[in-house]
Amino acid sequence: MQAQPNADAALRRLETMQRIRAYELALVELQRAGAPGTCTSVGQEACAVGVVEALDARDRIVSNHRSAGHLIARGAEPRRLMAEVLGRVDGYCGGRSGSLHISARELGVVLTSTIVGGELSMAPGVALAQKMGKGDPGGIVAVFFGDGAACEGIFHEALNLAVLWQLPLLFVCENNQWQAFVHRLETMAETAIADWARGHGLPVETLDGNDVDAVHAAAARAVARIRASGGPAFLELSTYRQRGHFEPDDQAYVDPGELSDWLRRDPIRLYSERLLARGLIDSGGLAALQVRIDAGIAAALAYAQASAWPAPETLTEHVYA
């Protein structure tokens, strides 16, 4: 088992996971009031927090439509994310992205694609540029994708090229069991995506994606390995998409038994219990943390809602460089 994080690191992980959760749930509430629906990462917070903490400033992240966790873990401001989701000028992309393809170059979160597999097509090129000296020296690239993307042909093309060209690329598969409205067991002939990655010759770790400490430890090992070898590595994080493909989604197609099993293994619940057991926080501290986070998200939402709409005459700005 990996070493326990110190108190500061542990509390930071809990807080970041809770911030992601609060952000996502605030948008769910907003959606009920008519705001655009989002693809939430509720249930997958440990994957984002564990991996992103293992990266540093010279590294790049390529993400997908379920990106809020990656962005917030990387330090994105919820208020600017919310402004983006609401289509306002203060969003990271000036309101042109909405929730689905938010990039924040200033944070090293580049080229987010909402096309399932699009992130896998671009990540090797970002890693190639790093390798050819265009990024910060020693930087690597982490690409987040799901089991759905692993069923795209581009998955195999990307893995093959990353191995062939020895690209500094960390593949992070958040296996959340759902591919839009279809369970992955209906779509995959293999039960583990990691087996496909092994077939391409990648070093692979498969682990519980709801255990943030385990995710972080595995990610740190993979990142160190990539920095040392220059070549790619692969993580398969077993997790669960607790909410629908997007909001609203009644999840009528979800087996209630499976969902409740995974809810018992909710990453934030698991981690809160661990920190309570370690004596790093008590129930009063947990409640106070939640209040602080909720207040921050409420302020972020107020900021976003006060942000201006883009001027219609800017419609065709940024089509061409």
Partner: peptide, 21 residues
Amino acid sequence: NTPLAEAIIAGTAVGAAASGL
């Protein structure tokens, strides 16, 4: 030289172009 895989050739070019190549 690349594999005969146009999707990843083009995707790699997109990622590389956005990163300074």
